[in-house]
């Protein structure tokens, strides 16, 4: 009897604990789910950062390489030209039948050097070619000159009126008459009349007229 009672008690006890266990499990599983999600997000941040850093480094390296290649090409062009000129002098038995400055002008332009002399390499390096700025300044100057001319041409119109403010010039009077006649010819087309309480309140009229589509 004692055993049976104990078993029954234990059974009841377990039954009473069962809902607590289940709730504990569900909470634990829910927590695990939240943890998993947060872990997933964190792992996505790291590779993204790595990709960004690696990409920026790669970009900088490529740009640097490109600069080096470009610079080497420019200098090699000049070296080839100089070698060619020296060969020409040797072939011509030491006689120079060309202007070195003219020959090297294009190559120097490519390097951004204004060559006064072939020898003045270091001195001329500071003189960077800026042909565009000069031309822009000239254009700007010409625009200003034109504007000034226009202002000067328009000023004589002010002297048409006499001291009392009455226009005495015949040509000006004729022009005024012409413009008045042209103004009289222009009239407002009165095919459609629209009456509104407040000026510009077209929405009200649109509601009244059924023919006017809504989107207008």
């Amino acid at each position: 009897m004692f055993m049976a009672r104990q078993v029954l008690r234990n059974g009841l006890f377990l039954r009473s604990l069962a809902p607590i266990k289940i709730t504990a499990r569900t909470v634990a599983s829910a927590n695990a789910g939240i943890k998993r999600k947060s872990r997933f997000d964190k792992t996505m941040i790291k590779p993204l950062l790595l990709v960004m850093i690696f990409g920026s480094i790669l970009n900088a390296v490529i740009a640097e390489k490109r600069n080096i290649i470009d610079m080497e090409r420019k200098y090699k062009l000049k070296l080839d030209k100089l070698k060619e000129l020296i060969r020409r002098v040797h072939d011509n038995n030491g006689k120079v039948d060309f202007d070195a400055d003219d020959e090297l002008k294009l190559v120097n332009l490519r390097l951004g050097i204004v060559g006064k002399n072939a020898t003045g390499m270091k001195e001329d390096e500071t003189d960077i070619v800026v042909p565009k700025e000069e031309s822009l300044e000239e254009i700007w100057q010409s625009i200003i000159d034109e504007a000034k001319k226009e202002v000067i041409e328009k000023t004589p119109d002010a002297g048409v009126k006499n001291k009392e403010g009455i226009v005495t010039d015949l040509n000006v009077l004729k022009d005024l008459e012409k413009s008045k006649k042209e103004d009289e010819k222009v009239y407002l087309s009165g095919d459609v009349h629209m009456m509104m309480n407040q000026p510009g309140d077209l929405n009200e009229i649109a509601k009244e007229h059924d023919k006017i589509p809504k989107f207008l």
Partner: peptide, 30 residues
């Protein structure tokens, strides 16, 4: 650094060749 070294090296080469060419021009003039 590599870029600057390469540039200075190329500049030196250009200067040497320019010097040679100038010498030839001076010889021709004299």
């Amino acid at each position: 650094l590599e870029h600057e070294e390469r540039e200075s090296q190329l500049k030196k080469e250009v200067e040497i060749l320019e010097h040679q060419l100038n010498e030839l021009i001076v010889q021709d003039k004299t």
